[in-house]
């Protein structure tokens, strides 16, 4: 059950999208989000939908996989749509008490839902096609200039990659400890709320103990390999911009330009 979480999952592959420089992909996502928020009519949304479909086709990510990522957010999407539905101004199509639905309300609701879904799917495409290691690498390089302002960029990136690395480990550990306590008669899914909260203790204490132990072991292992922070560190895999990154950049500029032009249609 816990193993079914797909958030931030990476699907290894060797497509153009996978091979792009992570910096390009991060900037692409930024541009994509800006373009998405520029869209205000059907043409703008059609453009962004087209971009997303092309992108996922190039990355060979199935639409089903992409949509399955939306599952946990379905409530938020519906909630936003419903709220927007009743907030339109103009001639009401249907009215009851203070609730009224207008043509503009429907339009807004559909666009809002579409915007959230496009936003989430676009972000998922990034994590689906970029390994966590590459992602933090790219982020570190993009935030590099902040080092001048004494922001510990390298340390932050290292913390992020360690955190990402340990998510599956901790999930596995939780599963294991849960089974062990269940074998001693603990039950996590019955009883009143207060009882359930109390029942979590036999799970949380060992989990914390082992998380601290792991952190300690990792720190020792890193020190044994002479890790001493970012100063003077070189990389095994250098990030290099290639021609495909340039092409991607030009395409994004074109998309942004079209998004602006389509606003006036």
């Amino acid at each position: 059950m816990l193993k079914d979480i797909t958030l931030g999952q990476y699907f290894p592959g060797n497509t153009v999208v996978h091979r792009l420089d992570p910096r390009t992909k991060l900037l692409w996502l930024l541009g994509y989000i800006v373009a998405l928020f520029l869209a205000k009519n059907i043409w703008g949304y059609a453009l962004m939908l087209g971009v997303l479909i092309t992108e996922s086709a190039l990355a060979k990510i199935k639409p089903k996989t992409l949509l399955s990522g939306l599952k946990p957010l379905i409530f938020i999407v519906i909630f936003t749509a419903v709220v927007n539905l009743f907030y339109g101004t103009g001639e009401p199509l249907w009215q009851w008490w203070i609730l009224k639905i207008t043509a503009e309300g429907i339009r807004k609701a559909v666009f809002m839902a579409l915007r959230i879904m496009l936003l989430v799917c676009g972000t998922f495409l990034l994590t689906y096609t970029t390994s966590p290691l590459q992602l933090t690498d790219g982020l570190e390089r993009l935030l590099g200039p902040l080092k001048k302002l004494r922001v510990p960029v390298q340390e932050l990136a290292m913390m992020m990659s360690i955190a990402l690395r340990f998510i599956p480990t901790l999930i596995e550990e939780t599963d294991k400890i849960m089974s062990a306590q269940k074998a001693r008669g603990a039950s996590f899914d019955t009883g009143k709320l207060s009882e359930r909260a109390k029942a979590l203790l036999p799970l949380l204490v060992p989990l914390f103990v082992s998380a601290f132990r792991r952190a300690d072991e990792l720190a020792t292992a890193m020190e044994c390999r002479c890790y001493s922070g970012g100063e003077g560190r070189t990389r095994m895999k250098q990030l290099v911009y290639r021609r495909r990154d340039l092409v991607t950049g030009i395409v994004m500029v074109l998309i942004l330009a079209s998004a602006i032009v389509l606003r006036t249609v």
Binding site: E173, K176, I177, S179, A180, Q181, A183, R184, L201, P202, V205, P206, V209, S210
Partner: peptide, 11 residues
């Protein structure tokens, strides 16, 4: 049932 490395379940 005693799992592998059961000492990690002590709390």
């Amino acid at each position: 049932l005693v799992f592998q490395y059961p000492e990690y379940q002590l709390f």
